[in-house]
Design a protein around this nucleic acid. Sequence first.
DNA 1: TATTTATTGTGATAACAAACACATAAATTT
DNA 2: AAATTTATGTGTTTGTTATCACAATAAATA
Lengths: 208, 208
Amino acid sequence: MKEQKIPKETIKRLPIYYRCLNRLVVLGKDTLSSTELSEYLGIKPTQIRKDLSYFGDFGTRGVGYDLRRLFKEIESILNLERTWNIAIAGISNIGCAIMDLLDFNHSGFNIVTAFDSNPNVVGNVVHGVTVHDLNDLKECTVEEPIDIGIIAVDPVDAREVANCLVDRGVGGIINFAPTLLNLPKEIEVVQMDLTSELGWLVFFIGNN
Amino acid sequence: MKEQKIPKETIKRLPIYYRCLNRLVVLGKDTLSSTELSEYLGIKPTQIRKDLSYFGDFGTRGVGYDLRRLFKEIESILNLERTWNIAIAGISNIGCAIMDLLDFNHSGFNIVTAFDSNPNVVGNVVHGVTVHDLNDLKECTVEEPIDIGIIAVDPVDAREVANCLVDRGVGGIINFAPTLLNLPKEIEVVQMDLTSELGWLVFFIGNN
DNA sequence: TATTTATTGTGATAACAAACACATAAATTT
DNA sequence: AAATTTATGTGTTTGTTATCACAATAAATA
Ligand SMILES: NC(=O)c1ccc[n+]([C@@H]2O[C@H](COP(=O)([O-])OP(=O)(O)OC[C@H]3O[C@@H](n4cnc5c(N)ncnc54)[C@H](O)[C@@H]3O)[C@@H](O)[C@H]2O)c1
Ligand SMILES: NC(=O)c1ccc[n+]([C@@H]2O[C@H](COP(=O)([O-])OP(=O)(O)OC[C@H]3O[C@@H](n4cnc5c(N)ncnc54)[C@H](O)[C@@H]3O)[C@@H](O)[C@H]2O)c1
């Protein structure tokens, strides 16, 4: 292992490895070769080894990887050892689905606050979290630090909500609304964009 | 414009251009330069021009692009002139959100069937579409051709549903379940994977 | 009409990422 | 203990994508 710039694409694969390893750990497996993992994931074994080699020598030649060890290594690389505080904006279909998902997984993602502008929704308790009004967020009534914001509000409101989240100090945002956010470049934004993906799919299908 | 291999990344940006152009058309704008579009999207103007140049000379030097013309060109490139038939599996939070979204946009995406395994949901009518039982899909009780399947079922059921969709002849699948699908390579699969994106985000935040 | 300004389109180059070939080393077999 | 098998780690090569520099051309101005 040498100090090298780590490809962005490598980082994007790590969570995929991580989830697969997690499943295999649960199944009680304890050694894993890159070829075997490759078969589960449809990612070439050389790619997997190269990705891992950026971070250290985790395997044993002739044997493979110790599954638990590798799992822990990736956990550490991705900063998943600590818990991360999440705020969700928009407690309708998508917002609820995310609360279900994160609560069920009891991953290191902790939903510390939820908010909505609809008075019929404000005050409800979902998965143990009280839904606040957007103004509470603005006025810092909610005291906990927020690491990540997830936006699941109406497209026209997404920008306003994003700005509030940034004011509250989030380091990154996941945006489900089909709205481009214009945020300072130190805030990392992930667009979860169904219609864009449909566009890609339809290009692909129509030309194959 | 010369015959060249078109980068995958270029195709992924086209839907982003498309949506932005759509909004600007609605606003009544009629000419647009790559620099201006660049400011809306945060994508460099040279990148935009290069992307478009793979498909033809759509602009006028010294002037820019005719907005409507460009919009129509991208529509044609992406095969968005025809309508596409969609089946949605899993009519709970995510499934309903998608039905709202596609119905509201009245994009060229037509939800022709929806299905679920829960007897309490089967038979309900959502946005004018009757929810069928999964077995109806298996037995081809639903007669319409399906171009694209969207999976929003429980992770453990995703693979089974994917196989049914492939048997029904879909060309591509969008999968919201955190489950890797092992499908023939001619079927294009898009994973909408929140937990992977959170992994990436947390790496980014933790190291910056 | 000549000059300047605005803006596109593109060949060339640079940056990035994947694939490959093979050296290395552990385990197993002969 | 030598040979074979298995599997990792990595320098090199190949392929892909983004950026740059600038030629081409239309419009506006002098
Ligand atoms: N990326 C995807 O895959 C995908 C799929 C479907 C829908 N969407 C998008 O996700 C978003 C949410 O969709 P949905 O169906 O869950 O929700 P919805 O459209 O049914 O409701 C939006 C919710 O946000 C709340 N809201 C609106 N403005 C707000 C504000 N300023 N502050 C706080 N809360 C506010 C509303 O009260 C409501 O509860 C929409 O933008 C939709 O277009 C994305
Ligand atoms: N990618 C993302 O951003 C994201 C976010 C949240 C949840 N999810 C995932 O999306 C999926 C759906 O989540 P949700 O909260 O909308 O749904 P849910 O988990 O509340 O319910 C799943 C639905 O699928 C139905 N179903 C189960 N098995 C089925 C089968 N074999 N055939 C047909 N229908 C079946 C159930 O009856 C139910 O209606 C889950 O897998 C969840 O993990 C993804």
